[in-house]
Deep mutational scan, measured.
Amino acid sequence: MGFKLLSKLLVYLTASIMAIASPLAFSVDSSGEYPTVSEIPVGEVRLYQIADGVWSHIATQSFDGAVYPSNGLIVRDGDELLLIDTAWGAKNTAALLAEIEKQIGLPVTRAVSTHFHDDRVGGVDVLRAAGVATYASPSTRRLAEVEGNEIPTHSLEGLSSSGDAVRFGPVELFYPGAAHSTDNLIVYVPSASVLYGGCAIYELSRTSAGNVADADLAEWPTSIERIQQHYPEAQFVIPGHGLPGGLDLLKHTTNVVKAHTNRSVVE
């Protein structure tokens, strides 16, 4: 069995187990497998329904001669939608809004960016022009300005110390501490036991640490421990890039980060 097929099978099995364990909360999309990078042309966006009122959005972007996937989250909030992270750029984010209108038909009224990198804030200006209120932590807003990236308009308070959590509509926002970046936030959907790890969490097929220019490698494993301790009931975990899975993604990420750190020390 090929690795790609095995990865998709694991996603399907995880979703099936969740649907059985929580039949009222989960209505997993039966329309197909989780979209992969090879299936999404740059400039297009796919939506994948995880649970009743919960979707991931998947886009792709060219970077350094390669094409990478990027995940975000959409959560229903009454007759409105909360968006977590842009679709990595203005063109993708405009396509995301169009796809949401086509498939869901509810307005996106608020959006949260989970850290300051372009795959999370690139497209904020498109959201703002569409009347979406954009939010991020003060740290993310400051770092985005320093980096020359787009800056969300509103500040999220109460997320300055490791372990801080605040309720934001249908989700809980959690600051686990520094990891992929010093400002990275985690998003949890309690009604569906869905954990969105953003770039602080890796997919299972990833074996290298990737972009760690703004990471705190020493603190990252401790931050992941905080996530595990705060959300032990999480059933569906979405990484910032690639295929979702279960809580095993947290341990896998820790292993990859520690291996990278150990290699760096040896070198």
Rank of each mutant, 00 (worst) to 15 (best):
M1C: 07
F3T: 11
K4V: 05
L5T: 14
L5C: 12
S7E: 10
K8W: 05
L9D: 12
V11P: 14
T14S: 12
I17H: 15
M18L: 03
A21Y: 07
P23H: 13
A25W: 10
D29E: 11
G32S: 13
Y34K: 13
P35R: 11
V37P: 05
V42I: 06
V42E: 10
R46E: 04
R46G: 11
L47W: 02
Q49C: 05
D52T: 04
D52C: 03
V54F: 02
W55K: 02
S56C: 12
S56K: 09
H57T: 02
H57E: 06
H57C: 15
T60N: 03
S62E: 13
F63S: 05
D64Q: 10
D64Y: 13
Y68H: 14
L73A: 07
I74R: 01
I74E: 03
V75Y: 04
R76I: 08
R76V: 08
R76W: 12
I84P: 01
A87W: 00
G89L: 10
T93G: 04
L97T: 14
E101A: 13
Q103R: 10
I104W: 13
G105A: 13
P107F: 02
V108R: 01
R110M: 02
R110K: 02
H115L: 00
D118S: 07
G122T: 05
V124Y: 15
V124E: 05
V126I: 06
A129S: 12
A129L: 14
A129V: 05
G131T: 15
A133D: 13
A133R: 12
A133G: 06
S137M: 07
P138L: 11
S139Q: 12
R141L: 13
R141Q: 06
R142S: 13
E145K: 15
V146K: 13
G148K: 08
P152Q: 14
L156P: 03
L156Y: 03
E157C: 11
S160Q: 13
S161F: 12
D164Y: 04
A165M: 15
G169N: 08
P170F: 13
V171H: 00
E172D: 06
Y175M: 09
T182A: 05
D183A: 01
N184C: 00
L185G: 00
L185K: 01
I186M: 10
S193M: 04
G197K: 00
G198A: 03
E203Q: 15
E203L: 00
N211R: 10
A215C: 14
D216E: 05
E219W: 12
P221V: 11
I224P: 00
E225H: 15
R226H: 14
Q228V: 07
Q228T: 15
H230K: 14
H230Y: 02
E233T: 10
A234S: 08
A234E: 11
V237G: 02
I238D: 01
G240Y: 02
G245I: 01
G246Q: 06
G246I: 08
L249M: 03
V256R: 14
H260V: 06
V265L: 05
